[in-house]
């Protein structure tokens, strides 16, 4: 019983991290009609930037979180401006140019991974922070980092939701996601909004990276499987839906942890993928999918 509860706690917190990355993928998809294949690498770079910032003496964990968010967001804006803008001019994600975007993202992901390798090396980096003793609830030890994940994710979701629904800028972002041509006509600065979407999405990935750092080691290969799992989370929750992305992340995290715990542990990375295929085949709109965008 305690084992099950342990698995649930681990699955839940890993799942929230998946959800945060999935949130970014979902945001970019609704803004640009593309799946950003290098998002896993952005998450990895965010985690490394967090380490770099936290290593500066006197910076608290929270500072690293915000710093990594800002820097990674800027990196995201640069990526969008330099690479994706050229391609999105040729059409959205379902045209022939869309294949170019997928291939471009794939190439970018391995290039970024190599850059990270050249800077930080192949060895796993431990996170140089300590949260003190875990909290004991009966027999279960609950490390404080899991608590941090839960709280930061909830706060971030609330902020993002308020931003998207209550502010004028958020309205512009939603308008761009809904229809770019009409947004142009309404006087929305569409290219700036797309850059903003990309930056916010990359900042979310950085948060996920910094949050998972104290639980797992930070290493250059962490981004690659993350992309698959976050995509699975986005699909399970319903592509393009923000609460769905978080919910999907939790479902994927729990499913994966429970399967790895009670079935064969070495196939851990395959389970999320099985879930992805099943959902795509049976219910492509996902759990909360309202309408999947279909372009003719």
């Amino acid at each position: 019983m305690d084992l099950l509860l342990d698995f649930i706690i681990v699955g839940l917190s890993i799942g929230i991290v998946y959800g945060l990355v999935a949130l970014g993928i979902s945001l970019i998809f609704s803004g640009l009609d593309i799946v950003h294949f290098a998002h896993g690498e952005v998450y990895m770079i965010g985690a490394f930037l967090g380490i770099a910032i936290v290593s500066i003496s006197g910076v608290p964990y929270f500072g690293a979180l915000v710093g990594a968010m800002i820097v990674t967001g800027a990196v995201g804006v640069v990526i969008e401006r330099v690479f994706y803008r050229r391609l999105t001019r040729g059409g959205g994600g379902y045209t022939v140019a869309g294949m170019g975007m997928i291939i471009c993202g794939f190439g970018m992901s391995v290039a970024l991974q190599n850059v990270a390798y050249l800077i930080w090396g192949a060895a796993p980096h431990p996170y140089p922070v300590s949260f003190g003793m875990p909290i004991f609830l009966g027999n279960i030890a609950l490390p404080k980092s899991y608590l941090y994940i839960l709280v930061s994710a909830l706060v971030l979701m609330a902020v993002l939701h308020t931003f998207l629904t209550r502010t004028k800028l958020g309205l512009a972002v939603r308008a761009v996601a809904y229809n770019k041509d009409t947004s142009y006509l309404m006087g929305v600065n569409v290219p700036a909004m797309i850059s903003l979407i990309f930056g916010v999405a990359c900042a979310m990935a950085a948060v996920a990276g910094v949050l998972i750092g104290p639980i797992n080691y930070v290493q250059i290969e962490m981004g690659y499987l993350m992309l698959l799992k976050a995509f699975a989370a986005a699909v399970v929750g319903g592509f393009g839906s923000l609460p769905g992305a978080l919910l999907g992340g939790v479902v994927v995290g729990l499913f994966e942890t429970l399967c790895a715990g009670y079935l064969i542990a070495s196939y851990k990375d395959i389970y999320a993928f099985l879930l992805l295929i099943t959902v795509l085949m049976v219910r492509p709109t996902g759990l909360l999918g309202i309408i999947v965008k279909v372009k003719a």
Binding site: F83, R86, L87, G100, M101, I103, C104, F106, G107, M108, S109, V110, A111, L112, Q113, N114, V115, Y117, L118
Partner: peptide, 16 residues
């Protein structure tokens, strides 16, 4: 050590 960087960038540049 640099091969992935080389190949990745060549893919991106070719597509662009």
């Amino acid at each position: 050590h640099y091969s992935l960087l080389l190949f990745g960038s060549v893919i991106v540049l070719t597509v662009l």
